[in-house]
Amino acid sequence: MDVINISMDGVLARKNGKKDCYYEWTVGFCQVKVGKCSMEVKGLDELFQDYFKKGMTAEEIDGSEMIRDVRKQNFIPEDIEDLYEEALKKEYKRYFESRKK
């Protein structure tokens, strides 16, 4: 069996003198309730920020477009795509309402 030595500096990054996972600073995960399950969706906050900057309301967003955008960073099974679409639109509506105040 071969042993591979990997420097932790290659896995972890330093910020303010602390070590932490690098990817957590670049792309966040959001918990979304899809059907009866809580799912982690990568990059959702960034996507919602983009929609909001474009002035898109929850009613204007096409669910299939949102699924396509989320799939760029996440796996979404085709057989529950409708549940994801419903959950994502609901989350964006909540996001939009909280930002427009």
Rank of each mutant, 00 (worst) to 15 (best):
D82W: 01
F48C: 02
K19W: 10
E46R: 12
R94V: 12
A13V: 14
K36Y: 14
G28S: 14
D79L: 01
L83G: 10
Y51D: 01
M39C: 04
D62C: 04
S38Y: 06
V41F: 01
C21L: 04
K53S: 03
E40Q: 13
E78L: 10
M66V: 13
Q31S: 11
R68T: 09
I6Q: 06
K15H: 15
R71W: 06
G10T: 12
D20M: 06
G17N: 09
M66W: 03
G10D: 10
V3P: 12
R99C: 14
K89E: 13
L44H: 12
G17I: 06
D2M: 06
G63Q: 03
T26I: 13
V32Q: 13
F29A: 15
G63C: 11
G17E: 09
K72T: 01
E40P: 07
Y84G: 08
K72A: 04
I6G: 01
G17L: 12
M66K: 01
F48E: 00
E40Y: 05
Q49Y: 09
K42Q: 00
R68S: 07
L12P: 12
N5R: 13
K19R: 13
E85M: 05
E85G: 03
V3R: 15
C30I: 11
E46T: 09
F29W: 12
N5E: 13
V11K: 13
T26V: 15
K100G: 09
R68F: 02
M8L: 04
K19L: 15
E85F: 01
N16M: 10
D45R: 08
Q31N: 11
K100P: 01
R14W: 15
C37I: 11
Y23T: 15
V11Q: 11
E81P: 00
Y22T: 02
F96R: 09
D20R: 09
M8S: 03
F96P: 00
L12A: 14
F75C: 02
E60W: 02
D79S: 05
C37M: 08
N16F: 06
E86R: 13
K93V: 05
D9A: 14
D2W: 06
E60S: 09
D20F: 02
D62L: 03
I61N: 00
I6A: 05
E78K: 04
N16Y: 14
W25Q: 12
K33W: 04
I6R: 05
V32M: 13
E46H: 07
M66H: 08
S7I: 09
R14N: 15
E40F: 06
I61F: 03
K72V: 03
T57F: 00
I67N: 02
D20W: 00
E59L: 02
S64H: 01
G43Q: 08
E86D: 12
D79G: 05
K101S: 14
V3E: 15
D79R: 06
K90A: 07
C37Y: 10
T26F: 07
A13P: 00
M8E: 07
Y92L: 07
F48Y: 10
K18W: 09
A87F: 04
K36F: 12
Q73L: 12
I76Y: 04
E78A: 12
E40D: 11
I80P: 07
A58Y: 07
K54W: 03
I76L: 12
R14T: 13
M1A: 07
E81V: 11
R99T: 09
S38M: 04
